[in-house]
């Protein structure tokens, strides 16, 4: 992207244009981005504007409203994040040591991987559960706002060049196997074993507007709510609280917290550093 083009933004007018564009998207397509954090949202809107070769966000609004394929591309821009398998290896280590023992007490385990994007985290969770002997009695519900990224997640294909980083992360996360047994290489692509998604349901779900759809023992939602403003974060915390079983576990990203949310007192910390919380009542 020619990032210099972002400089076209003219500030006060831009604020109005952002608001109108988000309102238009909500009214026409039902996707509600109005509560998103402004800084990264604006970057992504401008990336799409430049991609569509338009000069203003109002011109992007025109394109988005009259051409659903533009909306599809914008949705991709808004839902793709660049992550890695076993990102934050210490988290997955803590998951093995602190979450897995709690899950062993259940006959059947339901996990919600909310905002799974292209699936790196979902496959990582599946590998950990498999190695811990829990996978066969687990169902992972991996959801995202965007059908397109879910398709990619379902395929389980990642660039082969990423495997060094993923393998390194896997080992640092306490992985005991040879990581390469989980995928087969074809050309420049690594395709992960279908077994790793046999217990996974990939489904479209919008954290902003959809209701709880099940009761879960664990909800993993890392680095997803960082794109939401505070009010919206509170609403999603309500959704998670309502979706967790008693003693259910909530996992957030390293730089996220339930402090200062309305649900702070309803959880006890299971691992402060790794942002693992257990629902108390």
């Amino acid at each position: 992207m020619a990032i210099e083009d972002l400089a076209r933004a003219s500030d006060d007018l831009e604020r109005i244009e952002v608001q109108l564009l988000l309102e238009a998207i909500y009214q026409h397509y039902g996707f509600d981005f109005r509560g998103y954090a402004l800084g990264s949202l604006k970057r992504r809107l401008w990336r799409r504007a430049i991609g569509e070769k338009v000069e203003t966000l109002s011109a992007l609004q025109d394109r988005v409203l009259h051409d659903p394929t533009v909306m599809e591309r914008l949705l991709l821009d808004l839902s793709i994040n660049v992550t890695a398998m076993f990102r934050d290896p210490t988290f997955f280590q803590a998951f093995r040591e602190r979450v897995v023992p709690a899950l062993r007490t259940y006959p059947f385990v339901r996990i919600w991987n909310a905002g799974c994007s292209t699936g790196e985290e979902t496959y990582s969770l599946a590998i950990v559960l498999k190695e811990e002997g829990l996978y066969e009695r687990t169902r992972i519900y991996a959801t995202d706002i965007n059908d397109r990224v879910l398709e990619r997640a379902r395929e389980g294909r990642f660039p082969l060049e990423k495997m060094r980083e993923f393998t390194d992360n896997y080992i640092r996360a306490g992985g005991q196997e040879s990581f390469s047994t989980y995928y087969t290489a074809h050309g420049d692509t690594a395709t992960f074993s279908p077994e790793l998604r046999s217990q996974v349901v990939f489904a479209q779900h919008n954290l902003v507007s959809d209701a709880p759809f099940n009761e879960f023992n664990v909800i993993v939602c890392r680095n997803v709510m960082i794109y939401f403003g505070k009010t919206l974060q509170d609403r999603v915390h309500e959704l998670f609280y309502d979706s967790l079983d008693s003693l259910g576990i909530l996992a957030l990203g390293h730089k996220e917290s339930i402090r200062f949310t309305r649900y702070e007192d309803r959880y006890e910390p299971l691992d402060v550093q790794e942002k693992l919380y257990r629902k108390m009542y």
């Binding site: 990264s40 992504r44 403003g229 390293h254 730089k255």
Partner: peptide, 26 residues
């Protein structure tokens, strides 16, 4: 800024992002 995140300033405080590296940097 924490490693492997973009750090942004928003009207309501700090915000983090894991959108792709910009000019090879995050």
């Amino acid at each position: 800024a924490p490693a492997d995140y973009h750090l942004l300033v928003d009207p309501e405080g700090f915000a983090l992002s894991t959108e792709g590296a910009v000019r090879f940097s995050r």
